Amino acid sequence: MREIQLRDAKATLSAVVDDALRGEPSIITRHGEPEAVVLSFAEWKRLSTVPSFGALLAVSGLRDEDVPERDGAPLRDLEF
């Protein structure tokens, strides 16, 4: 992923977008610090639809009996 300064990104926005469409996202920096990322809409959509861990567990097919019982032993004492 290439880094490009904000002022250069403004001047070449069309090229930055074209690069993103080709699968080459750009990090936009301001005063040397990363501020934003330009990526294609398709890539953003793919990344934003990643299911949550809870949703993955819900469709995993695990049943209560598949998960081992918790150990009922008291927690150990720690001395600081």
Rank of each mutant, 00 (worst) to 15 (best):
H31M: 08
T49H: 12
I28A: 01
W44S: 04
L39R: 09
S52E: 08
P25L: 12
P25W: 05
V50H: 06
E43C: 01
A42C: 03
W44A: 13
T49I: 04
S40N: 06
E33K: 14
R46K: 13
E43K: 10
V50S: 04
V38H: 02
E35N: 09
I28W: 03
V37P: 00
E43W: 00
R46H: 08
G32E: 13
S52I: 02
E24S: 13
P51R: 03
K45V: 11
R22I: 09
R22P: 03
S40Y: 07
L39S: 05
R22V: 14
S52G: 10
G32T: 10
L39M: 15
G23Q: 06
S48R: 09
S52K: 04
S48W: 01
T49E: 14
T49M: 10
R46E: 13
A42W: 09
K45Q: 12
R30T: 08
E33P: 01
P34K: 04
T29V: 12
E35Q: 13
H31D: 15
T29P: 03
T49Y: 01
V38R: 02
P34C: 05
E33S: 09
V38S: 02
R46P: 02
E24K: 14
W44M: 10
L47A: 08
R46Q: 12
G32Q: 10
S40A: 10
F41H: 09
V38C: 05
